[in-house]
Each structure stands twice: as C-alpha cells, then as structure tokens.
Amino acid sequence: MLARSHRLTRGSDYKAVVRRGRRCAGAHTVTYSMRAADSTAPRFGFIVSRQVGGAVVRNTVRRRLKAVCAEALPDVDEGRDIVIRALPSAANATFADLRDEVTRCLSRKIAS
C-alpha cells in the first residue's frame, strides 16, 4: 500500500494536476502528471467515478491501481504528482492490463 507521504490528499492538488499536468491516455485509464513545487516524494491520487460501477467494483479498481503504483514507486521521479483516472472499461480489466497500461504511462516521462 502507499504510505501517506505518497498520496495526494487535497482536492486542490488533484485539480492542479488534472488541469496543468501532462496526460497519457489508455484504454482503461488516463494518467496525469506534473512536477510538484514543494514535494520531494512522488505522490499519487486516484479518481474512480460511479461510471466505473458500484462501490465494490470501484474499490476493487482503486485497490488494483494503488498496488500498481506501489510496485512502480521506485521508478517514478522525485517531486512528481500523479493522478490516475479510471475509465468505465477499467471495471472489466484484469490486474495485468491495468499494470501494463499504468506502467507504460509512468515510464513515458509524461511530465518533463
């Protein structure tokens, strides 16, 4: 799991990353990334709306995305804020599909 120091917790931080960050779209997720002004550790945030499914499905997708990000944490540059938005198709995606997609976007260095 991601430690608190690696999570976005304020709505204003989410909004800033989504509005000003660079994006990488896939079949199941959209990943936004930007360099943070004050953070030294990379921080992640997740947006999983009701369009993805009911509460159980949304929480499953969120847990899978958190696990993927925890695996990728050593490879992410310091000072990055990353928001991952799950699309409705993420409800039917396997863990491997989500991992491949998010890893591809994180490795692209989408926020230079």
Rank of each mutant, 00 (worst) to 15 (best):
1 M>L: 13
2 L>A: 07
2 L>W: 09
5 S>C: 12
6 H>R: 06
8 L>W: 07
9 T>L: 15
9 T>H: 08
10 R>G: 09
10 R>C: 09
10 R>W: 06
11 G>A: 10
11 G>P: 03
12 S>F: 04
14 Y>R: 07
15 K>P: 02
17 V>W: 06
17 V>L: 11
21 G>H: 12
21 G>K: 09
23 R>N: 03
23 R>T: 11
24 C>T: 02
27 A>V: 14
28 H>V: 01
32 Y>E: 14
32 Y>S: 12
32 Y>P: 11
34 M>K: 07
35 R>Y: 13
39 S>K: 10
41 A>G: 13
41 A>Y: 12
42 P>M: 13
43 R>Y: 08
43 R>W: 15
44 F>V: 13
45 G>E: 13
46 F>P: 10
48 V>S: 13
50 R>Y: 07
51 Q>T: 11
52 V>P: 09
53 G>P: 07
54 G>I: 07
55 A>W: 03
55 A>T: 04
59 N>P: 01
60 T>D: 08
61 V>L: 09
61 V>G: 05
62 R>I: 03
63 R>A: 08
63 R>G: 02
64 R>A: 12
64 R>M: 12
65 L>D: 03
66 K>D: 06
67 A>N: 13
69 C>V: 11
74 P>Q: 10
75 D>G: 08
75 D>H: 15
78 E>G: 06
79 G>N: 07
81 D>S: 04
82 I>A: 00
82 I>L: 02
83 V>E: 02
84 I>T: 01
84 I>Y: 01
86 A>L: 02
86 A>K: 03
87 L>E: 02
88 P>A: 05
91 A>D: 08
92 N>G: 05
95 F>A: 11
98 L>I: 08
98 L>Q: 00
99 R>Q: 06
100 D>N: 06
101 E>W: 00
103 T>E: 03
103 T>L: 03
105 C>Q: 08
105 C>H: 10
106 L>M: 09
107 S>Q: 09
112 S>T: 00
112 S>V: 00
112 S>R: 00
112 S>Q: 00
